[in-house]
């Protein structure tokens, strides 16, 4: 066995993983090779040196603090769920409210426009009556003022052809 192989087998030797022949060869090499012997010792020393890094002592309230943390986080979680649950309820109620509002506006609009039409028609009728009366009075006045030129021809208007024939005959 070479030195590299021996270095690789240090852990296996320490763990008792080597078979009898390998174990004997390993031990023989360590006796003969100073470098490997030092390396083997250092391997154990470094492992023991790690014990000098002491453990930390924990506080006694670790477990109560843990449950406090769980409670706090659960509350937060519940609040988030509440928000979404409320959001859903709010969205539904808001939607219903908007639909109702639209319907109300629509109905009011229809009713108002219908009412406006009735008012317009009545006003229009009275206006029309006034206009007709005014027209009649104007017509009457005009006819009277034109009487100086002879009787007012009240015949129905004729077509151009009839007028031409009448003129020819006349």
């Amino acid at each position: 066995m070479g030195c590299e192989k021996i270095k690789e087998l240090i852990l296996h030797y320490s763990e008792g993983d080597l078979n009898q022949s390998d174990k004997l060869e390993f031990e023989k090499h360590l006796k003969e090779c100073k470098e490997c012997n030092i390396y083997f010792e250092q391997s154990h020393k470094v492992w023991n040196l790690l014990d000098n890094w002491h453990t930390v002592q924990t506080k006694n309230d670790f477990i109560p603090r843990f449950w406090d943390r769980v409670t706090t986080e659960d509350k937060k979680k519940v609040n988030v769920f509440d928000f979404f649950r409320n959001l859903r309820v709010n969205l539904v109620s808001g939607g219903v409210g908007v639909i109702i509002l639209i319907l109300v506006v629509f109905l009011v609009n229809i009713l108002v426009s219908h009412r406006e039409n009735i008012v317009f028609t009545e006003e229009d009728r009275s206006d029309e009556e006034l206009l007709i009366e005014f027209d009649r009075s104007i017509t009457k006045e005009t006819a009277e003022s034109l009487e100086i030129y002879g009787p007012w021809d009240v015949r129905e208007p004729q077509s151009n052809d009839e007028e031409i024939e009448e003129n020819k005959g006349g």
Partner: peptide, 13 residues
């Protein structure tokens, strides 16, 4: 795992 421990140990030396 044994290889990792061994290699690490050698590096720690």
């Amino acid at each position: 795992v044994k290889t990792y421990v061994h290699r690490g140990r050698m590096k720690l030396i």
